[in-house]
Design a protein around this nucleic acid. Structure first.
Lengths: 98, 98
DNA sequence: TATCTAGTTGGCTAATTTGCCAAGTAGTAA
DNA sequence: TTACTACTTGGCAAATTAGCCAACTAGATA
């Protein structure tokens, strides 16, 4: 089971997803979007940091395939690609329980 | 649901765990330890990087509460605190599937 | 005692990440 | 057309992370 090239790629891919989730603000956004799609300004309002910062966080999540967006009028609406991301937190809580 | 101090702490805690998992080598180690406890030199042999690098990765995982260790003789044996970490990967694969 | 072995820690550089501000873009409204 | 609104992108400095080598530590063995 030595860590060969192909295996390495598998863990690299996994870690990209984890990295996209490994930030308090991004985790908050995941929870917020679990409620349904939101536009960027709604997220900004909830988090309370610069809009450019939020935009970059969303871009990280987009690149990781966690969220997708749709532009309607002046707003850009983001939503979770798979709402099951929230289940990850349940796993996470279990890990920390013991 | 605005991101207040206490909420912020919740996501900070979660993100610490995620960060500890957000590295290919550490994800590999998790999988390797799912098989049972291993000493550091066994991990080094499988991963193929410097022992000091592995030691630091293990230290990160230890601080995040993912692993614990026991010294026996000359060796230090690491194991998963909760083998259920592996379930996280199942969640992860589900997220990426759609 | 001295020496060896298995790990950890310190120190360093390189690479990555974060968050702000400023500038740019696209769609709306006047 | 001009101006406004909602967002994205570039650029930069500060902070964090990664990985190597060298030095150190603890336990085993001679």
């Amino acid at each position: 089971m030595r860590m060969q090239k192909e295996i390495q790629n598998k863990y690299k891919t996994r870690s990209e997803t984890m990295k996209a989730l490994a930030h308090p603000t991004r985790l908050f956004i995941v929870d917020f979007l679990a409620d349904g799609e939101k536009c960027v300004c709604e997220i900004v309002e909830q988090v309370g940091v610069d809009i450019s910062t939020i935009s970059k966080h969303l871009s990280v999540m987009k690149n990781a395939g966690l969220v997708e967006y749709e532009k309607r009028g002046l707003n850009v609406f983001y939503k979770l690609v798979c709402p099951c991301v929230s289940e990850l937190f349940i796993c996470l809580e279990n890990i920390k329980k013991l």
